[in-house]
């Protein structure tokens, strides 16, 4: 059966290995070195400076500002996205009317590009052409905020867009998990007089816990990036009010030509993501239920 197998294995593996090592593994490895250098220009080579970029980062108020903005998303995105998605998934699997219509509609933003969504919501939030503020004026608010132009509101405004976009995705994920729970579990609970609330917390959630865990890690990873929404809608403004680590490192590298420092921020971002994933996995560990 495996006669002459290397004649197949070698040509089947070489092209993808070559691409993968060149364009993926090599840049990841090289990033570790570049983060230890000062690299200002396209023509000049990087100069090794040890951990200087990282010590500079500790005293860089822009870095802490961006990290703080990420922290805002790390708290709000999971809370609202996973909360709403679980709620919708539960209601729609319990035989709500028009469940199919809602499922298809809620998922749609997931198919659109983040850029198109960013542009659409820039229109919606726009102080003169947007419908949101003219609606708020209609219902009696005399001076609605300039959502994307005010540092006090910009994070909430962008967070709202991210939640709007992601809820459908996680809802579909939870629906798939919930539909595989045997109906007899619910029937037994109802005979015992359990309320929907009890059923949700004591049957549904424990049985789909694995999926909830995956979902939380996914949304956390998005919260540590938020690149496309931010870059499209505000470019980090106003006055760094919505700058996150990903847009900060992009600007440092590709606008200010601080390639070494930009890479160092990317390394910090990587460790942040890793740390969050590890903490989450530990915190959320429960005995998995087999059924």
């Amino acid at each position: 059966m495996y006669r002459n197998k290397y004649r197949l294995i070698v040509p089947f593996l070489i092209p993808s290995l070559l691409l993968y090592v060149t364009f993926v593994l090599y840049p990841y490895g090289r990033a570790m070195y570049i983060s230890l250098t000062q690299w200002r220009g396209l023509s000049k080579p990087p100069v090794f400076i040890g951990l200087e970029n990282f010590s500079k980062m500790l005293g860089d108020s822009n870095f802490w500002n961006a990290l703080g903005n990420n922290a805002f998303y790390i708290i709000t995105l999971p809370l609202f996205t996973i909360g709403l998605a679980l709620f919708f998934a539960f209601v729609l699997t319990q035989g709500a009317r028009f469940a199919r219509f809602y499922r298809i509609t809620f998922f749609f933003p997931q198919v659109m590009s983040m850029v198109a969504i960013g542009v659409l919501w820039s229109f919606v939030y726009h102080p003169t052409i947007g419908f949101l503020n003219s609606f708020l004026k209609l219902v009696g608010m005399s001076d609605p905020p300039v959502w994307l132009g005010n540092p006090d509101y910009v994070l909430s405004a962008l967070s709202g867009v991210a939640v709007w976009q992601a809820v459908g995705f996680f809802m579909v994920l939870f629906i798939a998990a919930m539909e595989s729970i045997p109906a007899t579990y619910y029937e037994a609970a109802m005979i015992d007089g359990a309320t929907q609330w009890n059923i949700f917390w004591n049957i549904t959630i424990p049985l789909i816990w694995g999926t909830v865990q995956t979902a939380l890690i996914f949304i956390m990873i998005e919260a540590t990036s938020m690149f496309t929404i931010t870059q499209t809608m505000t470019e980090g403004g106003p006055s760094r009010g919505s700058e996150v680590l990903s847009t900060y490192l992009y600007h440092e590298a590709f606008i200010n030509s601080n390639f070494g420092y930009g890479t160092a921020i990317a390394v910090a971002l990587f460790f942040l993501t890793l740390l969050i994933s590890v903490i989450l996995t530990r915190l959320l560990r429960r005995e998995s239920l087999e059924f």
Partner: peptide, 9 residues
């Protein structure tokens, strides 16, 4: 790894 890590190299 996040793609940001590889971006500059």
């Amino acid at each position: 790894f996040p793609v940001f890590l590889a971006l500059i190299p």
